[in-house]
């Protein structure tokens, strides 16, 4: 005798950046099922026009983040059983980013901020130079290691209330990246990065509410990184003042 399939109620946000609303779907429950599986099931079985973004399905690429029951999560690593409430799940596009269509957001601001925060490697060496050896036990290198596993999923950006209130704010991920470079011995423009994160939308706008660190799926701590940038930029500002005088 075959047991009856249990179904859950899934509300999915459908629409573009101007208008839209939630549509409800009945999705069969599986023993082992992620939120990304649920969204994919809806696209395959209910509505092929449902738009969403994913790539690796194993928590490495950072493409599939969405709001699940109001919380930003990487959907490929979020099991239904962990978030199912009253047999229902609500899936929405990431907060703080404009919607392109359905669950896919325009991430331009998020990635542009990485560049605005100086988040690229600044080299002063050529391919002919010897590769510099970095001691992995050095305190600065340990700080870099603590923040370097960011997968650019924008969960922290969606979780941050300062990002919501201040459209110039660079956001946790870009500042976390800047902090790893400020501590990277191989980066040749660390003062330049400190200048970039000291502007109008810089690290000083952070209120240390800690949502970034609370929701980061890779358990990074951008709030601590931003606190580090605040300290270093203050030292930088004071030393600049001494130099100017």
């Amino acid at each position: 005798m075959q047991s009856e399939t249990v179904k859950m109620n899934v509300s999915v946000w459908r629409g573009n950046r101007r208008d839209g609303g939630y549509l409800s779907y009945k999705v069969p429950m599986e023993d082992n099922q992620t939120i990304l599986d649920v969204v994919t099931w809806i696209q395959h079985n209910e509505d092929p026009t449902l738009s969403y973004r994913f790539a690796c399905r194993v928590g490495m690429c950072g493409s599939c983040a969405m709001m699940v029951n109001g919380i930003p999560r990487w959907t490929c690593r979020t099991h239904v059983k962990k978030v199912l409430k009253d047999n229902a799940i609500k899936v929405a596009p990431l907060r703080n980013l404009p919607v392109i269509k359905d669950l896919a957001t325009d991430m331009d601001r998020f990635f542009d901020n990485w560049n605005k925060a100086g988040g690229v490697h600044h080299s002063d060496q050529t391919r002919n130079d010897e590769i510099e050896l970095i001691d992995p036990n050095k305190p600065a290198r340990k700080i870099v290691d603590a923040g370097i596993e960011c997968i650019n999923c924008a969960v922290c950006f969606a979780a941050c209330d300062t990002v919501s209130g201040n459209d110039q704010y660079l956001g946790p991920a870009a500042l976390n990246r800047a902090w790893t470079l400020v501590n990277d011995e191989k980066d040749a423009d660390r003062p330049g990065i400190l200048d970039l994160v000291s502007g109008n939308g810089g690290c000083h706008n952070c209120h240390s509410q800690g949502s970034c660190s609370e929701y980061c799926p890779n358990e990074l701590d951008p709030m601590v990184a931003i606190a580090g940038l605040k300290r270093e930029t203050m030292r930088h500002l004071i030393s600049q003042g001494k130099t100017d005088a």
Binding site: G199, H204, M234, L237
Partner: peptide, 12 residues
């Protein structure tokens, strides 16, 4: 909105 100098002044 809040740059390093304003932040510094507020902490000082």
């Amino acid at each position: 909105m809040l740059d390093a100098r304003l932040y510094f002044l507020q902490r000082l």
